[in-house]
Simulated scan of single mutants.
Amino acid sequence: MYIFGYLRASTNEQDAKRAQDSLKAFVSEKGHRIAGWYIENVSGASLQRPELMRLLEDAAPGDAILIEQVDRLSRLDDKGWSKLKSLIQEKDLKVISMDLPTSHVALSNQVGDEFTNSMLRAINNMMLDMLAAIARKDYQDRRRRQAEGIIKAKDEGKYRGRQADEALHQKIYQLRVENGLSISDTARLADVSGRTVIRVVNKLKELNPHPY
């Protein structure tokens, strides 16, 4: 069994690698090591996650996905979570989460009888569903509170909206347009997504043919 670490943060401003050392120490204590890392900054409420899909493609039947918490794997709605579970089950992959003790048995070298193993899988799957539902509710509650805060700020005349990072936009434009780098190289050097590069460059070109 190979163990693959999956690390995710929602935005580029957050450190997706924050829990990497904790995951390493966790599996080391169990007598295992992590075969590879898959790291990305994408919302857990979306299935459009290139690194997670790459992990699912690379993994072989019987391998394991290691995460810090279930919300790193999913903040999906019921339909999205069902789809992701199907992809995991099609490859017969185990999900090991540090916040889900019932999943830790996958790292044990002890082999139980068929009934015991079936019961443990059933319990673990139930707990995964519960934690995924809690993660989704937390995501929805935070979005609701954010929207309520914006409405209140607008009513009080204090809302300015999300301010653009002009220095970052300038860097993106210079790398992509003035230096002629590819979208992927620009995204890597500016530490943003390829979609952000395209959006920023197009916006600046529309506003001014020579914005900087």
Score class of each variant (00 low, 15 high):
41 N>A: 13
13 E>K: 14
50 P>D: 15
149 G>T: 08
59 A>G: 02
172 I>C: 11
197 V>D: 15
16 A>R: 12
58 D>T: 12
104 H>N: 09
123 I>T: 13
100 L>D: 13
146 Q>M: 13
4 F>M: 05
18 R>Y: 09
200 V>L: 07
205 K>P: 01
106 A>G: 02
86 S>D: 14
67 I>A: 03
181 L>M: 15
211 P>V: 09
192 V>T: 06
189 L>H: 02
34 I>G: 10
161 G>C: 07
146 Q>R: 08
206 E>M: 11
141 D>T: 11
35 A>S: 14
20 Q>R: 14
137 K>V: 04
204 L>A: 09
3 I>Q: 01
211 P>S: 07
62 G>C: 01
133 A>Y: 10
149 G>P: 03
205 K>A: 10
35 A>D: 14
103 S>R: 04
96 I>G: 08
89 Q>A: 15
11 T>V: 05
17 K>P: 02
207 L>V: 08
131 L>N: 08
63 D>P: 00
133 A>V: 08
151 I>C: 02
39 I>C: 10
149 G>H: 04
2 Y>C: 09
48 Q>W: 00
166 E>G: 01
175 L>Q: 05
186 T>A: 11
175 L>G: 07
182 S>M: 04
41 N>Y: 04
140 Q>H: 03
49 R>H: 09
184 S>W: 03
206 E>W: 05
141 D>S: 09
136 R>K: 07
145 R>C: 04
156 E>P: 01
1 M>I: 03
199 R>F: 02
74 S>T: 10
129 D>K: 00
130 M>F: 12
149 G>W: 00
47 L>V: 04
55 L>P: 02
131 L>R: 09
75 R>W: 08
105 V>P: 00
7 L>E: 11
95 V>N: 09
164 A>L: 06
128 L>R: 09
167 A>M: 08
25 A>G: 03
48 Q>R: 11
69 Q>S: 10
149 G>F: 00
65 I>K: 01
